[in-house]
Nucleic acid binder design. Sequence first.
DNA 1: ATTAGGTTTGACTATTTGGTCAAACCAATT
DNA 2: AATTGGTTTGACCAAATAGTCAAACCTAAT
Lengths: 198, 198
Amino acid sequence: MDELTEPEQRILAAARKVFERDGYAGARMQHIADEAGISKASLHYYFRSKEKLFQRIFDEYITRIVPVFSAWNDDGDDWQPKVRTFMKGMMKAISESPMLLIAREFDRDPSKMEALLTARRKKPNAFAAYFERLSKAGLVRDIDPRPLIMAMQALCAYPYMNKAFLCAAMRMDPKQYNAYLDQYTDQAADIIIRAMKK
Amino acid sequence: MDELTEPEQRILAAARKVFERDGYAGARMQHIADEAGISKASLHYYFRSKEKLFQRIFDEYITRIVPVFSAWNDDGDDWQPKVRTFMKGMMKAISESPMLLIAREFDRDPSKMEALLTARRKKPNAFAAYFERLSKAGLVRDIDPRPLIMAMQALCAYPYMNKAFLCAAMRMDPKQYNAYLDQYTDQAADIIIRAMKK
DNA sequence: ATTAGGTTTGACTATTTGGTCAAACCAATT
DNA sequence: AATTGGTTTGACCAAATAGTCAAACCTAAT
């Protein structure tokens, strides 16, 4: 069904690269064509317009990220390792998908939100439900789960979204910074676990 | 010294609005002129080029935000209210300056980082120093301060940087969301305090 | 009233950019 | 060899856009 021809794949990879780097407004169709090693006319042959090409890629990101954000299966296992695993997965997904691009382009075109809303509509806030059960069972503190949702996202996404600024703020070069992010994943999970623990 | 004429102020306000909304690549000099109620030629009369105008505004943001990020005065008072006050100030500063724009444009032009680096060079990581004293005095846990720095920034900045996404993720309309952010400020501070407390 | 100096703008330019199209290309089929 | 149908592209177009400039405008000093 969703078979992609080889040139289509090359184009999509090129487009991802250019859109991520330059944003929608800054991206140039010619640059995408160059990156894919084809002519601009061919690029338009495969994907009618810049907007269509971008939408395709944007939707791809959304539908890839949303499931990660609600991956809470409520078996009886300990919640602490679950939090740790969840945040590790979140960090990985975000490091691969450009949250900055998503934030960048979300309000440019309000219809961009549709994909997110439909992807999200099915599942009823998985973490909130999970947390409520833990709370009722007396396993965690009885607090508002919303700041926890915000915080998990924030701790995972922000280090990638504002990389350059953080490098400067923490006096690290990008190499040191990336190395540090490995340790950080666990430290960030610790913060959330402490916020939940009785 | 830094007296700004009335049209200059109008232009800068207009430019802030347009650059924040559209980013550098998406911003149009004509839109800025319209917003300021003058002709495009006049706009160029006051600020030679788009790049110069943007640089001016960008530097303004950086020099306004950086001091807030290192506002740790180490008198003998309790550290917990200090953390709370600090994060409140940070949230306010970030809600007024567009962290998303900063993140957006930081790597477009590497020289954008200079302003940040020079503004930062003076002060030797105020929080790290403060935290070390607290830690040696046995007032807080003895842990790596870096995730705390990251977390404070993340918790304060992310809710503004990814507003639209979070609205959708938490099923709130923008009005509800803004209302919630008031409570959130304290909840976020709680998370940091818990991470520091023994 | 005239002058002088800063301010404002409509009209214009050069360049960039998304998008089109007819012609060329190429591989498979007859 | 000829035909067919999908693919590729150089050449081109129309619109948008940053930036320029000479002329008009305005105000305060002479």
